[in-house]
């Protein structure tokens, strides 16, 4: 904000995270419930439906192959939606950030708070799906407990990428590009649905 490029972070950025947590505390039931639905639809349609016609992949039935990929995809979508549409609405429509920077918070604190929150949501939503596939008997090993740790890194990375995009775009429609050109291809071609080793060389 001071016109130079020196970063200006402070512990107050945690307050931004806490604000989001307070809001989330009011709406988490709907958010989380809706978040269940989509991965379950994929599991049902592809894992159980399409899975009948698909030969085992890497030695696993298709449903078992698909399940962990959906955990990762869930974690990715949670943070990308939050740090694109969610952040954009707070920034441009609700002017939440403008209110925040009128206090001792700096804009860098606000961005760091958004990053923390995006990462948290990624870990939370990914873990929920992990729990669901565990409940369905699709988690064979206790090592799966370490997966949320990996989500921290992934969540942070996608939060950063999304915020970068959010900072650059002029309007909310520009997120279509982000999802169509970056997020959806990542979802389809990252080994969620089929092993990358079998991918046609052209792609």
């Amino acid at each position: 904000m001071t016109g130079n490029l020196r970063l200006d972070f402070s512990p107050l950025s945690v307050r931004v995270f806490q604000r989001h947590l307070t809001v989330f505390a009011r709406t988490w039931k709907t958010c989380v419930a809706l978040n269940f639905v989509e991965p379950l639809l994929y599991l049902a349609a592809l894992g159980i439906g399409l899975g009948v016609y698909v030969r085992p992949m890497e030695g696993l039935p298709y449903l078992n192959y698909l399940a962990p990929g959906l955990v990762a995809a869930s974690a990715m979508f949670a943070t990308t939606y939050e740090c694109t549409y969610g952040t954009f609405v707070r920034f441009k429509y609700q002017k939440t950030f403008q209110a925040m920077v009128a206090t001792p918070l700096s804009m860098d604190d606000v961005v760091l708070g958004e990053l923390l929150w995006g990462t948290f949501k990624s870990v939370l939503y990914g873990s929920i799906i992990l729990f669901v596939i565990f409940a369905l008997g699709l988690v064979p090993s206790a090592w799966a407990l370490l997966i949320p740790l990996a989500m921290i890194l992934g969540g942070f990375q996608f939060a950063l990428l999304s915020l970068l995009w959010t900072g650059l775009v002029p309007n909310i429609d520009s997120f279509h590009y982000f999802f169509s050109l970056i997020i959806t291809p990542l979802f389809l071609f990252s080994g969620v649905f089929f092993p990358l080793s079998d991918l046609h060389p052209v792609i």
């Binding site: 107050l12 307050r15 806490q18 604000r19 307070t22 809001v23 009011r26 609700q94 002017k95 939440t96 403008q98 209110a99 925040m100 009128a102 206090t103 001792p104 918070l105």
Partner: peptide, 29 residues
């Protein structure tokens, strides 16, 4: 040490009236 009333109300629509005050206060620690 400043209090700022912007031209455009930027109250937090995701929060209640009292939460708006309490959460804003948290930005001042």
């Amino acid at each position: 040490r400043l209090g700022i009333v912007p031209q455009e109300n930027n109250l937090d629509p995701d929060l209640t009236v009292i939460q708006n005050l309490v959460i804003y206060a948290s930005y001042f620690n």
